[in-house]
């Protein structure tokens, strides 16, 4: 089936006084209809930036400097603001990290829902009101018919994130960009919200790009996963393969640093060093100064994604396999 979203060689730059910072470099991936793509990585790896670039809401002065974003085969990265506005909410829904701050405190949740639907759907206000109640029920808010008139501050954090999910889905987009939707929530609530997102995405056939740094959430939810490092994709592949059998040393390091629950360990595994700042990305592979398997080529040439068994990894360790094939 044709991809819902295709990102080709995306490059995002931030022009600053001290020169241009490259926040995303050569990011390519696609999401099939109904598929959930997890995007993981450390803070600053470019996960959220990728999401923002797709929905066309990069913080200025950040801008897309190269590559393409295609939604159902049509380019959307070069649209004008007004054309893109019609796509946001209608074709691509977005969920943000902190439900406490993403809802406007001065409008009832019902108003915010009907406003979104009336903006995008050819329905009348009475119908929008009816659907608003329906959506609140659908995301599991009890007594939805009364709660539709409540203000955001009258809901708990978890309930607010459910409202945010309803808002993102209410115009029935084909793709959801969820940027760390559970990071700000209690652990006990996280599972509920993830389960809800997963269920709704499946029922509505909505594809999802799920940005998070929580491997547990990814393993639970995603079909495929992309691991990002310093503005590039380090490894991408089916979630089981990436988790069980990581092909990029960085992914392996990430997986190893998840503490096991089934046995005691005296010392938690960690990756030494820190991710480079955008202004000081090393030559060659960005991961080479921290990589335990580094060899001469890594410091010179930058690896692109290449086939590495069941996944694709941007690592020279797999270069031989590629030339053989």
């Amino acid at each position: 089936m044709a991809a819902i979203l295709e990102v080709r060689d995306l490059r995002v730059e931030f022009p600053t006084r001290r020169g241009t910072l490259v926040a995303l470099d050569g990011v390519s991936f696609s999401i099939a209809p109904g598929e959930v793509l997890g995007v993981v990585g450390e803070s600053g790896a470019g996960k959220s930036m990728t999401g923002a670039a797709i929905i066309g809401l990069l913080e200025p002065p950040g801008r897309i400097a190269g590559g393409q974003v295609l939604l159902q085969g049509k380019r959307i990265d070069n649209l004008r603001y007004e054309q893109m506005r019609r796509i946001r909410g209608r074709e691509i829904g977005a969920i943000f990290q902190d439900p406490l701050t993403t809802l406007n405190p001065l409008y009832t949740v019902g108003d915010q829902l009907t406003e979104t639907m009336l903006t995008h759907l050819p329905i009348n206000p009475a119908e929008a009101k009816r659907r608003a109640v329906e959506w609140l029920e659908l995301v599991g808010i009890p007594a939805a018919a009364q709660r539709v008139q409540s203000y955001p501050h009258e809901f708990s954090g978890g309930m607010r994130q459910r409202v945010v999910i309803a808002l993102a889905l209410c115009a029935e987009p084909k793709l959801i960009v969820a940027d760390e939707p559970t990071t700000a929530l209690d652990v006990s609530i996280q599972a509920q919200v993830i389960a809800l997102l997963k269920r709704l995405a499946r029922e509505k056939g909505t594809a999802m790009m799920l940005v998070t740094h929580d491997m547990g959430v990814i393993a639970e939810t995603a079909d495929r996963v992309a691991v990002m490092y310093a503005g590039r994709i380090a490894e991408i592949g089916p979630v089981r393969e990436v988790v069980k059998n990581p092909q990029h040393p960085y992914t392996a390091g990430l997986m190893a640093s998840i503490p096991p629950l089934d046995r005691r360990v005296n010392r938690l595994a960690q990756i030494d060093g820190a991710m480079p700042r955008l202004s000081a990305i090393p030559q060659g592979c960005a991961y080479n100064p921290r990589c335990p398997k580094v060899f001469s080529r890594c410091a010179v040439e930058r690896p692109e994604l290449m086939d590495a068994g069941t996944t694709q990894a941007a690592c020279w360790l797999h270069a031989k396999a590629m030339t053989d094939a």
Binding site: L57, R85, G89, A94, F96, T102, L103, E115
Partner: peptide, 8 residues
């Protein structure tokens, strides 16, 4: 930002 993401 969220209002923009909703396409208002």
């Amino acid at each position: 930002k969220f209002a923009r993401a909703r396409g208002l």
